[in-house]
Design a binder for these strands. Sequence first.
DNA 1: ATGCCATCCAATGGATGA
Length: 260
Amino acid sequence: MKIATFNINGIKARAEALAGWLGRAAPDVAVLQEIKSVDEAFPRDELQALGYRVETHGQKGFNGVAILSRLPLEDIRRGLPGDPSDDQARWIEARVLGEGRPVRVAGLYLPNGNPMPGPKFDYKLAWMARLRARAAELLATEEAVVMGGDYNVIPEPVDAKKPEAWVADALYSPEARQEFRRLLWLGFTDAVRQKMPGDGVYTFWDYQAGAWQRNNGIRIDHLLLSAQAADRLEEAGIDRDERAGDKPSDHVPVWVRLRG
DNA sequence: ATGCCATCCAATGGATGA
């Protein structure tokens, strides 16, 4: 089962690039972030024509997440638990029924948190605490769990071309990095780091200042696997060529292939 | 780097992003 995450930075602007990538990469499941669309405006029919079931959790203008799946889905849940007053669309999850054992797939768009300090940074840390609580619940189910998405966290210096440029940024803040490590301490495996050790492994390049041409990237899109999923981890990859296409997102797809 | 570019909503600019 191939499971991918892709921050598409707007479904209206990315419909063609997304369809092209789905054709080339052929993921069984793709979680999308920053669809920047309400559910009613999401191009459901076009994606269904490509063979995908479509589940969205959108909002007007910003944020918004979705799950595309060629495999049946059940127990679909929208919104990260823990704060009924939070109306930002950043979390969706479902159980994917494959040929073998099912996989619980969650798609997340973690808050950016800038500027720091400030209310947006506080929201990021509070959201990460809620994420940790939900992650612990998912582990307790003893299902294979894959939490994929734009975490907006640069975990380690090796995950940035120029880590010194990020020291005052919420993506690289000690607090956010500690919260990310806490997810690992719960027992999750960072699939890309597991399969692609070393430097130069990035998932985002800014549109500005020739960041792509200079390979001035950062690794902020992650796939975290429970032990039951990590045991089945066959391969992980980053489709960095998508950044060089026409009208690209500033993020590229990241994926894992699980046995069974 | 002080948002250099990009997207969306709405309206001839503002908010947001990382």
